[in-house]
């Protein structure tokens, strides 16, 4: 399977007079692990929401291979092979782990009210096949033992993994991860970093990662884009970006920070 390139070109997003994103461009090379970092309010999540079609950019384009994502309704993205996890996990707490992960198979399966309601043989067969795959993904992420537990009863680290499993269940060629380490402890973060690295290596897919945790990002990313006040202030391999004075200033702050 060929993995298309994700290209964000000159995207501007305004909320009233406020520029959430100001002429942002970045390219996620096929098969790479690309990190999008920046201080609080830098526009990382806005950028994510533009890519996944939840926000409409005022200017600029986002393309994924031949698809223009700026003109695509969000529910079409899963069919193009884009999976996404959420900062706050965004799961159904009363449903089981398997049920939540199976939602990721929605675009790959068929059947409406009547075929589900009548439990038609082909619907059941399809459901079974996809449930097996969902179980495999859960097992790979270390939550295989919790398949039938309600998500609400799991510890937070496991909940984040369910969210990740659901995004993987889409069978994505591009995986968008929105702060996968948010709210997890140091040990869980380290485990997560190696899991994300494994996913990229084993599946050969592109990953775009929004993250706060610099340690996690610098350890695993191939390329890093730094946002500050909605603008790209650095873009390059982790070591270069880390040494960039602009980035240091944005993260540590300086007298000029407000002016930016």
């Amino acid at each position: 399977m060929t993995v298309p390139e994700l290209s964000v070109r000159d995207v501007t997003l305004r909320f009233g007079g406020l520029y959430a994103l100001d002429d942002v461009s970045l390219t996620v090379e096929p098969g790479s692990l690309h990190a999008l970092i920046g201080p609080n309010g830098a526009g990382k999540s806005s950028c994510f929401n533009v890519i996944s079609g939840l926000y409409r950019a005022n200017e600029g384009t986002v393309t994924f291979g031949d698809h223009d994502l700026t003109r695509t309704r969000p529910h079409r993205l899963a069919r193009m092979g884009i999976g996404r996890s959420f900062q706050n996990a965004a799961l159904s707490p009363h449903s089981t782990v398997l049920d939540n992960v199976m939602l990721g198979r929605f675009a790959l399966t068929h059947g409406g009210f009547l075929s589900c309601g009548l439990r038609l043989p082909w619907t059941r067969r399809e459901e079974r096949k996809h449930a097996e795959r969902a179980a495999e993904i859960c097992d790979f992420l270390g939550i295989g033992a919790e398949l039938h537990a309600p998500v609400g009863s799991l510890p937070y680290g496991a909940v984040k993994r369910v969210d990740l499993a659901r995004a993987l269940a889409v069978e994505p060629s591009l995986l968008l991860l929105d702060e996968p380490a948010a709210g997890t402890n140091a040990a869980e973060t380290a485990e997560l970093a190696s899991t994300i690295h494994d996913i990229r290596d084993e599946l050969g897919i592109s990953i775009l990662l929004v993250e706060h945790d610099m340690g996690l990002v610098m350890g695993i990313a191939d390329r890093v884009t730094v946002l500050d006040f909605g603008r790209v202030i650095a873009d390059g391999p982790p070591a270069d970006v880390q040494a960039d004075p602009e980035v240091v200033r944005a993260y540590l702050g300086s007298e000029n920070a407000e002016a930016g």
Partner: peptide, 15 residues
């Protein structure tokens, strides 16, 4: 249930 619990998440998953 996905639409009930979180509309953006439901949309991103293809609903």
């Amino acid at each position: 249930r996905a639409v009930r619990d979180n509309e953006p998440a439901a949309a991103v998953m293809g609903v």
